[in-house]
């Protein structure tokens, strides 16, 4: 059956061609999908970043919700510092500086655990329950707590407790600043995602090649001051570290608009006196 054999050979060849064509067809469809979807362009840029020797961990694509918030600088710490025991508090420029008469020993490996417990005591630190430990800002000799605000925390020297430890893992002194009456100025709105924030920072050319993104955090940072009032906006705080270096640089991205916030911007742009 010669004819039958030829038929079989043809059949096999055509099936092979079909499979090949179908593969091409599918690839085409994917390519079209690529062009429309925005998520993919994000991952392309992240890939580009990795090509530039920028080390990034896994990034979240989730949009969070956050507020514009305000708080007031006040003298409440000075008014209540009389109740602090075993220390000599001083109130200097809206900051409470206090030295402990007898140093307090904290857990060597986990100082946070000991301090968290101490913070509930209002004769040790005022309003201690309103602060939360910041792993990223703390070092072995300097433990930093940020003031809590609307489900997140404030990254500002105006709302912080910094504990100074000596080499024997003992707290010797601390500095505290406090904002009163923290409230939202408007209903919550959606922020940009971690990925987007990093991409924008990259596109502003703020991440040099050969660096590592050490950590990113969504917190509140100061946008402007009006008299005693402080206005904070949700900010993606991105810590980058050049390779072969331990120095960390903090970059800030406005989590609502995606704009970069320069350090110098803080008071300048919106200081009421300079606006007139």
């Amino acid at each position: 059956m010669n004819f039958r054999r030829i038929e079989i050979i043809f059949l096999v060849t055509f099936i092979a061609i079909d499979i090949f064509l179908f593969g091409m067809f599918k690839k085409n469809m994917d390519m079209q999908a690529d062009n429309v979807s925005q998520g993919d362009s994000d991952s392309v840029i992240v890939k580009e970043m990795r090509n530039d020797q920028i080390k990034v961990g896994n990034l979240s694509k989730k949009n969070e919700n956050a507020y514009y918030i305000s708080g007031e600088q006040s003298d409440v710490l000075r008014n209540q510092m009389g109740q602090l025991a075993n220390q000599t508090p001083q109130f200097v420029g809206h900051e409470l500086e206090s030295e402990l008469k007898t140093p307090i020993t904290v857990d060597k490996n986990n100082p946070r655990k000991s301090i968290d417990k101490l913070l509930t005591d209002s004769t040790f630190v005022l309003f201690g329950d309103q602060y939360v430990y910041s792993k990223n800002l703390s070092t072995s000799r300097n433990i930093v707590y940020n003031q809590k605000a609307m489900g997140s925390s404030i990254y500002s020297s105006e709302a912080q407790i910094r504990f100074t430890l000596n080499s024997n893992h003992q707290i010797v002194s601390y500095t505290q600043s406090y904002l009163q009456g923290i409230k939202s100025l408007r209903e919550s709105s959606e922020t940009i995602s971690e990925t987007r924030a990093l991409i924008w920072l990259y596109q502003y050319n703020e991440i040099p090649n050969n660096t590592t993104v050490a950590w990113t955090n969504l917190g509140y940072t100061k946008l402007l001051s009006i008299d005693g009032d402080r206005v904070f906006i949700p900010t993606w705080i991105i810590a980058i570290r050049p390779q072969n270096s331990t120095q960390i640089q903090l970059k800030r991205i406005n989590a609502f608009t995606g704009g970069i916030i320069k350090e110098t911007d803080e008071n300048l742009k919106n200081n009421p006196s300079s606006m007139n």
Partner: peptide, 25 residues
């Protein structure tokens, strides 16, 4: 076998036409 062969030829022809006329290609 002839039937399968016909189907295979038709499929390959249609796919070819689709691919050639699609600008995404």
């Amino acid at each position: 076998i002839p039937l399968a062969l016909t189907i295979a030829v038709v499929v390959s022809l249609t796919l070819s036409v689709v691919l050639w006329t699609n600008p995404a290609n």
